[in-house]
Amino acid sequence: MTEILIRNAEKKDLPAIQRLLSTYFLDMEELEPEDFVLAEKEGKVIGCAALIRDTSNENTFLELHSIAVHPNLRGKGIGTRLMEYLINTIDSPEMPGAQVCELYVRTTAPGFFEKLGFITMQDAEKLLIWEDCRKCEHFEKCAQHAMKYFRVS
């Protein structure tokens, strides 16, 4: 079996990230290629996920974003490896002040994140955290589940 490499993305990976995200009608919004980590097999990008870091407040706000695995390779642990890699970066020296943090995700696949230790948030909590949810006309029938992962390092 061929080894799967998890690595940080670079600018040159932008076309591969965009191709994979477009499979699921996802876009990069305000993300840069360097915000992503990639799963690579035989030199081809087969999965990606981004970690948004906002350190403008006293607490570090972290959100998992734009998670995608090639449709033919779903269910093989690639998404789990990407998430574990990102969760482990919270403890890295590049993340000062992240010893106590909450990691957030909005997802249509809550079962996947529950297996990783995430818990579902109430709608009131969701409205406090995401301004775009407050403004969304679809909030009452939103397909996205807001979830959080609390970590004390």
Rank of each mutant, 00 (worst) to 15 (best):
L21Q: 04
A16R: 06
P33N: 13
V45D: 01
K11W: 00
V45C: 10
E32C: 05
D27N: 15
N8V: 02
L26T: 05
E29I: 00
D27K: 12
C48E: 03
A50G: 14
Y24V: 11
R53M: 04
T23H: 08
P33C: 10
G43H: 06
N57H: 13
Q18Y: 01
E42D: 15
N57S: 14
L38H: 01
S56N: 10
G47D: 03
A50T: 08
R53T: 12
T23F: 05
E10Q: 12
L14S: 07
E34C: 05
V45S: 04
F36T: 06
P33A: 15
F36W: 02
V37K: 05
N57R: 12
Q18N: 13
E42R: 10
L21D: 09
E32S: 14
A16T: 01
L14V: 01
M28P: 04
L20I: 14
Q18S: 13
F25I: 09
F36S: 02
F36Q: 04
K11R: 12
G43V: 05
D27W: 02
G47K: 00
S22Q: 11
E32L: 13
Q18W: 02
K44L: 11
P33D: 07
N8K: 15
D27M: 06
E10C: 09
V45M: 05
P33S: 14
E58G: 10
C48D: 03
E58Q: 11
L21R: 04
E58D: 13
D13G: 06
N57D: 14
T23D: 08
C48R: 02
A49C: 14
E29R: 13
L21S: 08
A49P: 02
E29F: 01
I52N: 08
A16M: 04
P33L: 08
E10L: 08
D27E: 14
A39M: 07
K12F: 00
M28W: 00
V37A: 13
S56A: 06
R53I: 12
I17V: 11
D27T: 15
D54V: 03
D13L: 05
L51K: 12
Y24H: 11
A39Q: 07
P15E: 09
R19V: 13
D27F: 01
E30S: 15
C48T: 07
D27V: 12
Q18K: 15
R19C: 11
T55C: 04
I52C: 09
R53N: 02
E30G: 15
C48K: 01
Y24F: 15
L38Y: 01
K12W: 00
I46S: 09
Y24I: 07
K11S: 14
S56R: 12
K44W: 01
I46W: 02
Q18V: 12
D35F: 00
L31Y: 05
A49G: 13
G47R: 01
E30W: 04
E42W: 00
E42I: 00
L21T: 10
D27P: 06
A50V: 04
L20V: 14
V45P: 03
E29N: 13
L38A: 03
A39P: 07
A50M: 10
I17S: 07
N8M: 06
Y24W: 10
E42L: 09
V37M: 03
